[in-house]
Computed example of a mutant assay.
Amino acid sequence: MLPRQKNRMIHTNGYHVQPLGNAKDCGTKQVGHTWLQKLWKKNATSSSYGQIKHGGTPHTWLWRGSYKLYTRRERVPSEMSEKFKVKMLSPAEIAFLTQYCTVMKPVTKTLNILQSETNTHMGWLLPVIFQLEAKLGRLEVSCKLCLPLIRAIQVGVQKRFGGMMGDPELIAAAIFLTKFKTTWTEKANIIEAGLAYVKHHIEHMTEDEMEHVGHSSDEDDFFSSLKSKKSKGTSELDGFLACVSDKIDLLNSFPLIKKLSLKLNTGLPASAACERLFSCAGLLFTANRARMNSTNFENQLLLKLNSKFIE
């Protein structure tokens, strides 16, 4: 089952392309990009391959390929440019690429976090997006050359995630993560919406539990919901928020919070993990192995994805 947002975050990086095409500095970006591509292509095809220690030729067809390409420009010595007869970058081009890397660094970190397969839950979505917006806002002053890029990313983030930023269910999922709780945003209305969602569902969970418990009299049964709301629901939420521990094991001390957290945080914030699974499955189920039965295919896929635990 795919995450709630359905739209894959892997395409978020594409929102900066069109607005940046109208910027006066896009020519500088293109020159720097062409220069680095030429240099790495010559280095890869020359007899002295490997003299530029960059850890592999970058793939610009990947969403993070251009960013990695530009960050590696500092590892290129001037003598390598002279050897391959490629003109060095001008100071203006270097300044632009430096600011480009500064702007794209929080974007790449955001995508890496949300597309991870481990230690990532649905509750990470809003805190990460809010942090990205805050970082981009601070960069507007220091990165004037890439201001169109910053504006385009901000518009793209709002277009894709703007409708989710006030979703009480996603806010509650973030509050249930001990790493964040209520500290990930300064907007009081956002936190209040999430807390209201939590209190409402905890009250219903408490009432459902009380319906299965016997009572001594009709009077006690009639007013039991008032006792449960006060003693169990609100106190458990207050106790969870008051704890300073950021370990996930803290949820074991609050059964109602844990139950609701499992419901909201089981899903992943992006479908990249599912796509990686489908990609591995495609490598196994080739045309030459079309008669493989489902059990054999499932076992081979399981072994392939868990090979690091077997070795």
Score class of each variant (00 low, 15 high):
H54W: 10
L302N: 13
A193F: 02
Q5I: 13
F130S: 06
F180W: 13
L237W: 06
E275C: 11
K179R: 11
V86N: 02
F278W: 12
M122N: 15
L251G: 03
E133N: 14
A172T: 04
E203H: 10
G50Y: 08
F285P: 00
R64H: 14
L250E: 03
Y49Q: 12
K144L: 11
S225T: 11
L114G: 02
K263Q: 06
E207Q: 11
K227H: 11
Q115S: 10
F180G: 04
P58Y: 02
N296E: 08
P269W: 02
L283G: 08
A272G: 07
S253F: 08
P106Q: 04
A273F: 14
N112A: 07
R291I: 09
H16S: 10
H212L: 12
I94L: 09
G27K: 09
S245Y: 09
S216C: 07
E79I: 12
L39W: 00
H212K: 15
K229M: 12
Y49R: 13
N22A: 12
I257V: 14
F297I: 05
P269T: 03
A273C: 13
C143H: 06
E298D: 13
A23M: 04
Y67M: 07
N265P: 02
G163I: 10
I171D: 01
A172I: 02
A23E: 06
Q154M: 12
G123M: 01
M165R: 13
D246A: 06
L260N: 02
A281W: 01
L136E: 05
V76W: 00
G21P: 00
W63Q: 06
E74D: 07
N265C: 15
T120C: 12
Q51A: 10
A270E: 00
S90V: 05
N112R: 05
V141C: 03
K247A: 11
G156V: 02
T102M: 12
S225K: 11
H16L: 12
L241S: 07
S66D: 15
K68L: 12
D25F: 03
C280S: 08
F240C: 06
L170T: 05
A95V: 03
T185H: 08
A23W: 07
L170E: 09
Q154H: 06
L126I: 15
T98H: 06
K68E: 14
M122D: 05
F130G: 00
L260S: 00
E275Y: 05
T234C: 08
H16D: 03
F84S: 07
G214I: 09
R8K: 04
K53A: 09
Q131D: 15
F254Y: 15
D249S: 13
F309Q: 08
V17K: 03
E298M: 11
W63Y: 11
K229F: 11
L2V: 05
S142N: 06
G65Y: 04
N293I: 11
E203N: 13
T295I: 13
M1L: 14
V141Q: 07
A134K: 15
A272M: 02
R138Y: 06
